[in-house]
Design a binder for these strands. Structure first.
Lengths: 253, 253
DNA sequence: CGCCGATAGTGTATTTTTGACACAAGAGTA
DNA sequence: TACTCTTGTGTCAAAAATACACTATCGGCG
């Protein structure tokens, strides 16, 4: 929560720099140890969790806005970002900023405006990311999708919509490629599919089908270390992968 | 094109009523005689074709905006509308309204603002629609998708994106239901699928598969009149249809 | 009235893909 | 070396997709 002076300063800058009434919220997905994760923030001096979000500069393409916002708020840069929905309920942020309501007259107060928010989902390699909060955030951390805290605003809806989109686009977007590490085992990839689809898959049929797409390259050396049979390592054959995505992977899961 | 007085009046009303920097454009699809059609407008005293579009009232949910805009501009009401993409290039409308640029100072001039536009696609029963232009439009008419005029602004991109979305969502949205008349023949439905997918399908396999979904009811009486064997009439079994859509029709085309 | 052309309805053999399942192989551990 | 756990691979039956051919019925025409 901001002091009156901070609020005034912030609102002034915001009005000068950003398009009014428009925001962007990002759902950043990562995958680690068989679990889907989302990057969430908490705000200083305030309880509750938020998706990383921000505003659109007056002369900035929105794709770049989304990228910039993520970079500013989480230090992530040049990652896979995909617009998925606009949330335009006039009430969606109405009560939320009540705390600032009386500090400034409505016409000066950026936060009592109505905001449409454009939802983007992002896919990152969990291991590449070292979440670190920006000046406004107290914390920035990965949360397990199965164990989410309560989210502020309509961010739970945005998150759910992102997840539904992910599920629907699994055959048309490079989701595996962007969420997995460079090299991975077949069981790890299967776990990702199972998590996104929320459904158990048969190990052998999954492997047959995946290999059938012709988008995987098998590395010579298996991964050692576990107390079991060493699994082969795979990586995506980017050329074939992209060609296959244009058609979509046929068949359902 | 507006006179200076009309422009002043319009800008004043717009600033009072609408959210700035945000617009909505609608791609209205219809299907008639085996061809996909799109509803396009021309503007009075100006060449060129546009998608029907408009603005969001300050306190209006965007879904209602889209509905209202279509109603105002084309008299269509309560039709299937689906948000599909936001177009946010800062240049997308920059040059377009140059004709109004010098009539009013930039801060008063609604049209020299940057606009993000939210794309909606709409599906209507062609026969229900009697296109009629509103006060701003000179004409409002169906255009064949294979024979489109040149579109203003980035409306060609918006239209193409809508069409791509339609193709991807064919198995998840009630596209057939909303584009076909209440009763239709199997070859007519097949033609719709062929048109959207831009691909020939086998008559017999199409029929078997469609019937296999269990979403069609066959009417007792066939359609008479043509100089050929009378085809059966079908209609959608709405209950099964909606249940099936939740899962998605499995398999590709 | 019967034949023709065109379109619609239905069936069947073949191939491909899915789904279910079992066993062998390798790596660490006791 | 035997055991456990996990991964890799093969096989068979069922289901689905594909390719293709025949029959039925309408209106029109001689």
């Amino acid at each position: 929560m901001l002091t009156k002076e901070e609020l005034e300063e912030y609102c002034k800058t915001a009005r000068e720099s950003y398009l009014p009434h428009i925001s962007i919220d990002c759902v950043v997905f990562g995958f680690h140890e068989g679990l889907l994760k989302v990057l969430l923030l908490t705000v200083k001096n305030e309880g509750g969790w938020y998706l990383p979000g921000g505003f659109v500069l007056k002369d900035e393409p929105i794709e770049l806005s989304a990228n910039r916002i993520l970079k500013e708020r989480t230090r992530l840069d040049e990652i896979f970002l995909q617009q998925f929905h606009v949330f335009g309920d006039p009430q969606r942020s109405k009560q939320h900023f009540d705390m600032y309501k009386d500090m400034l007259p409505p016409k000066d107060n950026w936060f009592t405006n109505r905001f449409l928010t454009i939802g983007y989902y992002a896919l990152v390699d969990f291991c590449d990311v070292n979440p670190s909060p920006d000046q406004f955030a107290a914390t920035c951390s990965w949360c397990d999708l199965n164990d989410l805290p309560e989210l502020k605003l309509d961010h739970a809806l945005i998150l759910k919509t992102a997840l539904d989109t992910l599920r629907l686009q699994l055959n048309y977007q490079p989701i595996g490629y962007n969420l997995m590490q460079k090299e991975f085992t077949m069981p790890e990839l299967q776990k990702l599919y199972e998590t996104i689809l929320d459904k158990k898959l048969d190990r052998r049929n999954f492997q047959r089908r995946m290999l059938g797409f012709g988008i995987l390259k098998r590395s010579e050396k298996p991964r050692k270390g576990g107390a079991h049979k060493a699994p082969y390592l795979y990586s995506f054959d980017l050329e074939n992968y992209e060609a296959a995505l244009k058609e979509g992977f046929k068949g359902g899961w």
